[in-house]
C-alpha cells in the first residue's frame, strides 16, 4: 500500500487510499442492500411459491401421508420403492418419453415446413392466422372437441364410412396402440401453428447476403437450405424445440380430457398419473414421489437443451 502511495502521489487534502477503498466498500454494500431490497418481493415470491413447495414436496415424498390427518410418519424411500414396482409408473414414463420424443421432432419439423411453404406467398398473413388459430383455444376445449372427432360416430369414422373405408374406422381413443398417437396428433395440430410463427420470425431475421452470395455461386435451393439457412436458424430451432419438448412433457389438460377414461390409465403421462394418484386416489405422498421424478427428468431435458444452445452460441 505504501508503495502505491509513493507511486501515485495524492493531492493535498485528498482522502487516503484506505479511506477511499472503505468508502467504495460502503457504497458497494449500500448498492447490494438496495438491490436486495428491490429484489426482495421477487425473491420472497420465488422462495414462498416455488422453492418452499419444491422442498416440501420432496419431504412429503419421504412420508406416509394419511388421508384426512396429514403427514404422520416418516417412510424413507418407501414411496420410491412402490413407484419402482408399479407397472403404471413405467407405462406413464414410457408414454411421457413418447410424448417428449415426438415433441422433439415433429412440431418443429412440421412448423419449419409450413414456415417455408407460406413464407413470401400471396396471403401469407391469412395462412399464418389459419395455422395459428388452434393455439388460441385452451387445451381442455381442444381435447373435448377432438374427443368427439375420434368418437365412434365422430367425424373421422363417419368420413371413413362415407367413402367406403368403414374397415378403417376405429375406437381411436380406446385401443391401446392408437390412443396415444391420436392424442399426440391433436397436440401437434394445436402446437404447430405457434412453431411455424416462431420459425417465420427466425427466418425473416436471417441476413440475406449469405444466401444471395450462395445463389451467385450457383448453389441449389436445397444446398442453400441445408448449408446456410439451417445453421443460421439453429438458435431459433433449438428455442422452438425446447418450447415444444417442455409443452409435450408437461402436457396435462389434453391427456386428462382425452385419455382419462382409457381403461387402466395406460395412456397417461407422468404428470397426469401424478395428479391421478394424488388427487383422485388420495395417495398424496406417493404422488409427491412421482412429482420429484417428473421434476428431475424435466430439469435434465431442459438443462441438456440449454447446454446444446450454449455450445452452438459459442461457435
Amino acid at each position: 500500500m505504501k508503495q502505491q502511495q509513493q507511486a501515485f502521489a495524492l493531492p493535498p487534502g485528498a482522502p487516503s487510499i484506505d479511506a477511499m477503498i472503505a468508502a467504495e466498500n460502503r457504497r458497494a454494500r449500500k448498492r447490494l442492500w438496495t438491490a436486495l431490497a428491490f429484489m426482495a418481493p421477487a425473491i420472497g415470491f420465488v422462495a414462498i411459491f416455488l422453492l418452499l413447495p419444491v422442498f416440501f414436496n420432496l419431504y412429503a415424498s419421504l412420508t406416509q401421508w394419511a388421508k384426512f390427518s396429514g403427514l404422520n410418519q416418516f417412510a424413507g424411500l418407501a414411496n420410491y420403492q412402490r413407484l419402482a414396482s408399479n407397472p403404471k409408473f413405467y407405462d406413464a414414463t414410457w408414454n411421457t418419453l413418447i410424448w417428449v420424443g415426438v415433441s422433439f421432432v415433429l412440431p418443429a419439423t412440421i412448423g419449419l415446413s409450413l414456415a417455408m411453404l407460406v413464407r413470401g406467398v400471396k396471403g401469407e398473413e391469412t395462412f399464418k392466422s389459419i395455422f395459428f388459430l388452434p393455439r388460441m383455444f385452451s387445451a381442455t376445449a381442444v381435447g373435448v372437441v377432438w374427443y368427439y372427432v375420434y368418437a365412434n360416430e365422430g367425424i373421422i369414422n363417419s368420413g371413413l364410412r362415407a367413402v367406403g373405408l368403414g374397415d378403417l374406422a376405429n375406437r381411436w381413443l380406446y385401443e391401446s396402440h392408437l390412443a396415444t398417437p391420436a392424442m399426440i396428433v391433436t397436440h401437434i395440430w394445436q402446437q404447430v401453428g405457434l412453431m411455424m410463427v416462431l420459425l417465420l420470425i427466425g427466418l425473416n431475421a436471417l441476413p440475406s447476403e449469405p444466401m444471395e452470395a450462395a445463389k451467385v455461386d450457383g448453389a441449389s435451393r436445397s444446398q442453400i437450405f441445408r448449408h446456410i439457412v439451417l445453421p443460421l436458424l439453429m438458435p431459433t430451432l433449438i428455442m422452438v424445440t425446447t418450447v415444444s419438448v417442455l409443452a409435450g412433457f408437461t402436457s396435462f389438460d389434453l391427456v386428462w380430457v382425452m385419455g382419462r377414461d382409457f381403461p387402466n390409465r395406460s395412456t397417461l403421462t407422468l404428470s397426469v398419473n401424478q395428479y391421478w394418484e394424488s388427487f383422485r386416489a388420495g395417495y398424496w405422498a406417493y404422488g409427491s414421489a412421482i412429482a420429484v421424478v417428473l421434476g428431475v427428468i424435466a430439469m435434465s431435458i431442459s438443462w441438456s437443451l440449454g447446454a446444446l444452445q450454449h455450445r452452438l452460441d459459442k461457435r
Binding site: R171, Y174, D261, P263, N264, R265, R280, A281, G282
Partner: peptide, 18 residues
C-alpha cells in the same frame, strides 16, 4: 375401500372395452 374400488373400476372398464 376406495383403495380397492378405484383400481377395480379401471379393470372393469378395461374388461368392458375388451
Amino acid at each position: 375401500p376406495s383403495e380397492i374400488v378405484l383400481p377395480a373400476v379401471e379393470e372393469f372398464n378395461r374388461f368392458m372395452t375388451n
